[in-house]
């Protein structure tokens, strides 16, 4: 039985739903925070996720990071040596999507020489009338950056994402997406699957 640890950076523009997503992860989808809270620096969410069919688990240290430019310098220190990245944008905000490349660059600069697997998450799909970032557009960019991508609405209970871990031998689920990193025994794959 191995307990692995991974540092997961949750990044993206202000008010795209990073903290709401982190709370969903923490509470296994039970808790949606209705009010906006501004994250200063980083909020740490620790979540232990089992790897199915093994006794192993991964203790995820989710660094729910401030989106405001004001805290950017602080993040440089707090983001040191990340293992996985979760980039979030708002499907109703073109700017939040275009800024993802800036966030990605900032995160990758913290992991020079090592791989930084990650996912791109488009949030707020419940706002269908206000959508400006198309799924295909996000997929094309994510593909070019080596990121997996999916869309979700943290607000709607039926589309809340959850973290599911799988061994690499297993096929990632269709709607899921992959965060993985390597361990001497095998490749542990993390899947953020939209249920």
């Amino acid at each position: 039985m191995v307990k692995l640890a991974a540092k997961c950076i949750l990044a993206g523009d202000p008010a795209v739903g990073k903290t709401a997503l982190a709370q969903i992860f923490r509470s296994d989808g039970a808790h949606f925070q209705k009010n906006y809270t501004l994250t200063a620096g980083v909020d740490l969410v620790v979540k232990t996720v089992p790897i199915p069919d093994t006794g192993d688990s991964v203790e995820l240290f989710i660094f729910d990071s401030a989106g405001k430019e004001l805290f950017s310098e602080m993040l440089d220190k707090l983001w040191e040596s990340p293992n996985v990245l979760c980039l979030v944008y708002d499907v109703t905000s073109e700017q939040s999507f275009s800024n993802c490349s800036k966030w990605l660059e900032k995160a990758r600069s913290q992991a020079p020489g090592t791989s930084l697997p990650g996912v791109l998450v488009g949030n707020k799909t419940d706002l269908t009338g206000r959508r400006v970032v198309e799924t295909a557009q996000a997929q094309a960019w994510a593909l070019g950056q080596g990121l997996e991508c999916f869309e979700t609405s943290v607000l709607r209970a039926d589309s809340r994402p959850q973290i599911v871990l799988q061994q690499s031998e297993q096929e990632p689920s269709q709607r899921g997406t992959v965060l993985c990193y390597w361990h001497p025994q095998c490749t542990h794959v993390m899947i953020l699957a939209v249920q």
Binding site: M1, V2, K3, L4, A5, A6, K7, V58, E59, F61, S81, N83, H183, P184, Q185
Partner: peptide
Amino acid sequence: SSDEKHPPENMIDGNLETFWTTTGMF
């Protein structure tokens, strides 16, 4: 770090095929 397949004793057993591994983060 504790991984029973690669315990810390492997570092001092005089065998260069066995090792101790970290299990994430530094």
